[in-house]
């Protein structure tokens, strides 16, 4: 009897700890999203609908790349970890661009600084200038604390399949692309 009760308590404690862990992981840092709710759809739609200038000054929205596997990276030139992961994104854009993957950077920054940075790094994917409005947009898709870098991956149907606060590792991106391609 005591053993049965012990096992029951252990299972309950385990389930609780796991659910707390997964919930924290999902909400705070990154994770694959198994399902989506109505509010999440709306949030993704606000991401697709937001219009921002590109480096040439043309108003653009992410809707321009609907149907692609989209990697949307919120970043800024003043953010060191953001700068560190961009060379990886350039390589992966080169490697997977022909297969339907499209990286887009949304900069919480000023156009002149982003242009300088883009030229220096020879960024091969579109950059949109969001200024601090970019941080509000990132909040809509789960970046509660507005820290950077923050990246979301959307599948060809515009579903949010991954979000990441902090650097998104190459291996993780390859594994996501492997599932979506």
């Amino acid at each position: 009897m005591i053993q049965v009760r012990t096992v029951a308590v252990l299972v309950a404690a385990g389930a609780l700890a796991l659910s707390v862990g997964f919930a924290t992981n999902y909400l705070m840092r990154g994770g694959d999203l198994a399902s989506r709710g109505t509010s999440e759809e709306a949030d993704v739609e606000s991401l697709f609908a937001a219009r921002m200038p590109d480096l040439a000054g043309n108003q653009t929205s992410l809707g321009a790349w609907r149907g692609k596997i989209l990697v949307v990276n919120f970043w800024a030139t003043w953010c060191v970890p953001c700068r560190e992961e961009i060379p990886d994104f350039i390589r992966l854009q080169r490697e997977f661009g022909g297969k339907g993957v499209q990286f887009v950077g949304i900069a919480a920054d000023q156009a002149d600084k982003v242009t300088l940075f883009s030229n220096e790094f020879q960024i091969n994917y579109p950059l949109l200038i969001g200024n601090y409005g970019a941080l509000d947009l990132a909040k809509h898709v789960g970046n509660r604390i507005s820290a950077l870098p923050f990246t979301v991956v959307l599948d060809r149907n515009g579903r949010l399949v991954h979000r990441q606060l902090g650097v998104l590792e190459v291996d993780k991106l390859r594994s996501i692309f492997g599932e979506l391609l």
Partner: peptide, 13 residues
């Protein structure tokens, strides 16, 4: 069980 939870699950302030 706690050890199995990813370390990056900790809250950012």
């Amino acid at each position: 069980v706690l050890a199995a939870i990813p370390a990056y699950g900790q809250d950012l302030l």
